Amino acid sequence: MNPRGDSLILIGMPGSGKSTVGILLAKELVKGFVDTDLLIQEREGQPLQEIINNADFQALRNIEEQVLLATDFPNHVIATGGSAVYSDAGMNHLRTYGRVVFLDVPLDELQMRVTNYAARGIAAPHGQTLAQLYDERRALYRRYADITIECGARPPSDLVSDIIYESGEWYAEVDA
């Protein structure tokens, strides 16, 4: 068994497919699934964008950190919000549950997928473009990633296969 646990934590930019891939991965591996953005919305009783509108992006990041630190999800696939990597404490807590998988999607693909950037509930300063956010976050995603999956425009089922393959030794140990 991996000393850090048997969960998989998905990180990446908004629009990278963390929730979509996470659900499919959880089904394939027979694990629970949790989306931390949904945990935030449930806790706050409002969508992410309303949190930003009523306070600011930093308030959302602070709430996100509190939610990450309160998680207790062994044997799960955990889809994080794109800004989870701003919380060193939150990411280190999540890492105690398992490996971190970075879904690396090129900027041009993200720009096609994220058509509602200003209203999507993205924890970014007002006026920051998706390209600027991408440049800012990419190093953080790489810093925390145990596994990086090059996504491009590939279908989610291919990404699930890659994640299982890339973490194969780990799952062999878990099953032993």
Rank of each mutant, 00 (worst) to 15 (best):
R142W: 02
F102K: 00
N53W: 12
L8I: 08
F33D: 03
E166L: 15
I51D: 09
N54A: 15
G12S: 08
H76M: 10
L8C: 02
V101W: 03
M13P: 04
D88F: 00
R120S: 04
P155G: 11
Y144Q: 09
T20S: 14
R95T: 02
Q111A: 03
W170N: 09
E65W: 04
E65R: 12
L25M: 09
L39I: 12
Q41I: 07
I23P: 02
R95C: 05
K27C: 05
N62Q: 14
Q111V: 01
D88Q: 07
Q132R: 11
Y144M: 11
A70P: 10
A139L: 02
V100K: 00
A139W: 00
R61F: 04
G90W: 01
R113F: 06
G81D: 10
A84C: 13
D37E: 08
T36K: 05
N62W: 06
A84H: 10
V105M: 02
E169A: 12
M91A: 04
A123H: 02
R154G: 04
R142Q: 13
T96C: 00
E173W: 15
W170C: 10
A26G: 07
R138Y: 13
I149H: 07
R154M: 12
I78G: 04
R143D: 00
D175S: 14
I52K: 09
G17V: 06
L60D: 10
D162N: 10
F57M: 06
A131F: 12
G32D: 07
V77S: 08
E28A: 14
Q132I: 01
G17A: 09
Q132V: 01
V174Y: 08
Y144G: 13
Y134I: 05
P74C: 02
T36E: 06
S87D: 11
A70W: 08
L68W: 09
E64I: 06
Y171P: 06
A89W: 06
N54P: 12
N116I: 01
H76K: 11
L107N: 01
D88S: 05
M1G: 05
Y97C: 00
S19K: 13
A55F: 14
L39T: 08
E173L: 15
N2W: 00
L110F: 04
S157R: 15
E150P: 08
P47M: 11
N116D: 12
L159Q: 13
M91N: 04
L133T: 08
A123W: 01
L48A: 12
Q132C: 03
S87V: 03
I11W: 01
V174H: 08
T148Q: 11
I63F: 05
G82P: 04
G32F: 01
D146F: 12
Y171W: 15
L110P: 01
L38H: 07
G127Y: 13
P14K: 06
T96H: 01
E42W: 09
P155E: 15
S87I: 03
V34Y: 03
P74E: 00
D135P: 01
N92C: 07
P3S: 05
D108R: 03
L29T: 04
Y165N: 14
T80F: 09
S167G: 07
I11F: 04
